[in-house]
Nucleic acid binder design. Structure first.
Lengths: 142, 142
DNA sequence: TACGGTAATAATAATCGTTCTCAATTAGCC
DNA sequence: GGCTAATTGAGAACGATTATTATTACCGTA
């Protein structure tokens, strides 16, 4: 079975809240984990011809469960909500080209350390963060 | 006249794009600048009993103009879009308590320098950025 | 000051992403 | 296997934002 680790995390989260493990939830988890980040709509189309048809509402419900259990993280970008895979992949931030829409990922430990420092100074405990740089990518500078 | 500087910026932006200066735009700009950050809905209620009634659509249109001209910056938070005043106030980022919803502002030059460095490494030119730290504020740690 | 072209407005309808409702189905414990 | 509560899919509903449209306001020019 693929994604055994994440399936375990999800099962545990469901058990802890008296919820049930269903075929749909397993299918959605599996499809979700094949991508870095994805929207509900994309998942819906991706699972379009799956044997038991999966409704859009179920996908939204399940993505929310994945967020609660720490497998996914939601990010508001444009009009849609994107869901990031945060288990296998290290945390990363984004540079977004305001001209062509390109998204460049990066990670920087120094920045994260400074964030921790700022938070400590305010008695704040960080659980997660979001950093987005907007501007022009190398191709669009002309 | 209050907010003469920002009015000048807006007028210039409008002129450059063949758009017109209207009473509504001046009123909305003025009301917008009285706050650190605000939503379209809040502005709408705030201007509810203004002499020429101002429609919600006009507020959205004008806020978009303010963003284009660099006077405002939009931020997606929860389901609504918040608009930040960025002319008088220095750029600042936010710590958001996921328990009580408190928003703590901060600014940190070192982080911004590191952002520039990362961007340079990717041939990216930053025009603006957004940094949000999520977690628990000092009051909610219990 | 009046004119004329064009943009802006208010009201409303429409759109889009997301959530809710509800009857039918299914998981998980006895 | 059967009970009970959770889950599902379909479509309606929702809320924030944008488009439409007839009317009004701006502003350069005469």
């Amino acid at each position: 079975m693929r994604h055994a680790k994440e399936l375990g995390i999800l099962r545990e989260h469901l058990a802890k809240h008296g919820l049930k493990v269903t075929k749909q939830r397993e299918v959605i988890l599996d499809a979700f984990l094949r991508n870095e980040h994805i929207t509900a709509e994309q998942l819906y189309r991706m699972l379009g011809r799956h044997k038991p048809h999966i409704g859009l509402a179920t996908i939204y419900r399940t993505l929310n469960l994945l967020c609660e259990s720490g497998i996914a993280q939601e990010r508001h970008f444009g009009s849609q909500t994107h869901y990031d895979n945060v288990v296998h992949k290290r945390h990363h931030d984004h540079m977004i080209c305001t001209h062509c829409g390109a998204i460049i990922e990066f990670e920087n430990c120094d920045i994260e350390h400074l964030q921790e420092e700022v938070a400590r100074r305010h008695g704040f405990t960080i659980t997660t963060h979001k950093l987005e740089l907007y501007g022009l990518c190398s191709k669009c500078k002309n």
